[in-house]
Computed example of a mutant assay.
Amino acid sequence: MSDRRLLLVHAHPDDESINNGATMARYVDEGASVTLVTCTAGEMGEVLVPDLAHLAFEDKGGLGEHRREELTRAMRVLGVTDHRFLGGFGRFHDSGMAWHEEGHAVAAEEIPDNAFWNADLTEAADELVKVIREVRPQVLVTYDEFGGYGHPDHIQAHRVAMYGALLAAVPSYKRDLGEPHDIAKIYWTAMSESRMRASLRALREAGDTETFAGMEPDGKLPHFVTPDELISARVDGRDTVQRKMDALAEHRTQVQTDGPFFAGAESGHAWWAEEFYRLVRGTPGPVDDEGFESDLFAGL
């Protein structure tokens, strides 16, 4: 077992590459153990590739199985060899979502009976307790309480991760799930407000009005953008960002390689090379000149 062990809990395939791809690749390169738990197969995601539209939930279906293969290829690119679906593939179904008039996701009016959003919290958390007590990570990464942008599966993944971490540490709790383990540091993913405003300003000054449409450099930003004073850590992924983008490209049904995620290749994808985190549990380590930890394991 590696001396450094990182556990990430995400809702759907592709969330891990978007939020933490550079971080995961970096720690793999450094010899740390990286475990990814994905809570659903993303069966109700939007299919952005016309020739694969038949996979959509409302069409012939099969998107979940296809996204499992996409995730396998993405993890191969990042070098992550330990990936699991919470409770096993198909245990929890994608819940779907709808858009609120204020611009964030909400639960859809109709949700499958076996949707992750409907899952019993303790039952789902117990599945994660098993993983935590087996892997014994020092660091856990998941979403904030709003799931970044309100998606019900992201919110539920946050709840399961936080409750699972709590239960896993209790000495008297369900010893049949493994020996108790207390995770030293827990982080929530974040996107830096200052970096977002700077990026928007550069795009608008260059005449690009379509990328991140509706967001302006000095205007109101969505919930997933985090004020810098709330951010604890910044992982420098300049050496691994190309693998992040290559991994994201493997999620072919979910991203368009000529879209905003892939803009800026001429500058080395600098926007996506920095990944930010909020420390919500544990003691922070040393910080740089801007007040950020540069290593999620700092101080351990």
Rank of each mutant, 00 (worst) to 15 (best):
A22N: 05
C39D: 07
G103P: 04
R278H: 03
R67P: 09
H151N: 01
D113P: 13
H158V: 08
T81A: 09
D29F: 13
E250H: 02
D239L: 12
A22Q: 02
A11L: 02
A249R: 05
L36R: 15
E102M: 08
E274Q: 07
L48P: 02
I111E: 14
R4W: 09
T211H: 09
G147W: 00
E58V: 00
K174N: 13
P286S: 01
H251A: 00
A125H: 00
A247M: 14
G214P: 07
Y163G: 04
L167N: 11
S192T: 05
S199T: 14
A56V: 00
M97I: 01
G103L: 07
V28H: 11
T283N: 10
R238V: 15
T81D: 11
G87S: 08
D15P: 03
G87T: 03
T35P: 15
V77E: 09
M75N: 14
D94P: 03
R73C: 08
L52G: 06
T35A: 13
H100S: 06
G291T: 05
H158I: 08
D15I: 00
Y173N: 00
S95H: 03
A105Y: 01
G147Q: 02
T226C: 03
M191R: 05
E102D: 15
A206N: 15
R234D: 09
G61E: 04
V235L: 10
R281E: 10
G31V: 10
V280I: 02
H12L: 06
R73P: 08
K220V: 15
E65P: 07
L300N: 15
L78K: 15
G21P: 05
V106D: 06
A263L: 13
D29A: 15
R73E: 10
R197C: 10
L121R: 02
M1R: 13
T189N: 04
P152R: 05
I111K: 12
F57C: 00
A249Y: 01
G90A: 12
V141I: 12
P50I: 02
A11I: 00
T253H: 00
H269E: 03
I18M: 10
